[in-house]
Amino acid sequence: MIHAASGTSRRLGQLRLALVLLPVLLITLAGSLSVAQEAVELEARVFELAGQLRCPVCTSESVAESSSPTSLEMREMIQEQIALGRSDAEVLAYFQDRYGDWILLEPPKRGLHLLVWILPAVVGAAALVTLFIYIRRWTKAGSQPVEVDPEDRDRVRRALGESQ
């Protein structure tokens, strides 16, 4: 008996070791993200801003994605403006001033645009509240004994009595 038990713990140990190896593998992957730190900050910021602007001459692409000459020039303009020390908001406002809200891939949080931000939050919150109410109701139902009509009970009794 003792022998078998020690065998079990050894095998359990193997299992646990194997299970620990899995996270170690994955974390190496996560660590590789740091390799990317060498980048030119400026370039990254240009593309980040370009990613928030819609390419005016494309079907449905951002200025960062598109390779149209207009998008290339817009990225150039973003880079120049950053070099001039303008803030992200100022750069975006520059293009918004020329093209209107249409150019902003992120709808501004005002006016009718607010709906697209508020509605999901409202619907999500309403759904969570509803779920909460239902859960309360269901938990009560689960903890209370089932109420049975006296009439039903009689019927069951009769049926049981008849079968006996």
Binding site: G51, Q52, R54, S62, D101, W102, L105, P107, H113, V116
Partner: peptide, 15 residues
């Protein structure tokens, strides 16, 4: 939005 006000707007990746 276009049906209500006639404005053309964009909702893209950042949203």
């Amino acid at each position: 939005v276009e049906a209500i006000t006639g404005d053309k707007v964009t909702v893209g990746a950042p949203f």
